[in-house]
Amino acid sequence: MIPFEPIRLFAFGGFNVPIVISLLIIGGGMLWLLIRSLKAKEVDRRIVFVFIFAAVSAPLLFEITFDETATPIVKGVFEKIENMPERSRIVIAFDFDPAMAPEVQPMANAVIRHALAKNHRLIFISLWATGQALMDKTISEIIPAEFPQKQDGIDYVSLGYKAGNEGVLNVIVSNVKKMFPTDVNGVPLTDIAIFNGVRSMKDVDMVMAVGGGKPGPKEWVLFVGDAPGGPPVAVGVAAVVAPQMYPYYPKQVLGILGGIKGAAEYESELLHNYPRFAEQDTPGLRMMGPQTLAHVVIMAFIIFGNLAFFIGGRHKEKRL
């Protein structure tokens, strides 16, 4: 386990001057505002703006990232993959398009890395025509470079895209071959080692559905996970869709990776447990940098506002 670090300073692999300076400026500014608030002085809105600007641009420029602690809803997914016996079969569904990719692609990447590091086997599938290209790209970018010993057909296989939306799920939940007689390269499923003993989706050990539209994670839960004998399903969704998925947790889904925050939590959990990924790009954590700092700034301002308000003798603010 990497010991806990609140802020990882790894832009230049070590002590990083610009990060320290920018954080000192922001922190010092906050301190100054705290003292002002304790004197019951109000802050001009432009000062709020400056802090927001700094809080968003500093992490962007200097790659400041914050260590995330996985919340139970994300940890559920991580621990399932971690604790399954080796060589378990995991289905990864790519149900998204390039527009949604910035938010959900990091989740797919993190889960793929984790599963392969754990020596599980992966089955890729897409219900979106636009998903297949993203899937091919992901496979060709991650596997040969990071897991050169993994072989197509033995350790992973891509089934490609199939039209028919949730109808496809309805079929593969009882028979995969009927919908996908071959994999994406035209090899019959009967010749693919992963599918030995896999007749339907009920025979895989887990489904990780990544997406945000329809058909997508919700359909995987309803048509595959909820089918009698269906596999456990975990989902990764865009932030706007996450509230619609919450009602399924924890009864029907193992866990939910919601938006970039969910991706960041998973990445950080991965980094904690697998030092080998320390050099990997972690877009989730990277994109959470500005978010976290901005949220902290906003929360700090809410506290300042209340301090000023109470110390200032609860003066009437409203006109009229």
Partner: peptide
């Protein structure tokens, strides 16, 4: 509270344009 994250993302998008596409800083 739930909306804040989405709004910050918008600013991240704009600043990324400025820093990356325009200035090439990142």
């Amino acid at each position: 509270g739930y909306t804040v994250m989405g709004r910050i993302s918008l600013l991240v998008g704009r600043l990324t344009f400025l820093f990356k596409d325009w200035l090439g800083l990142i």
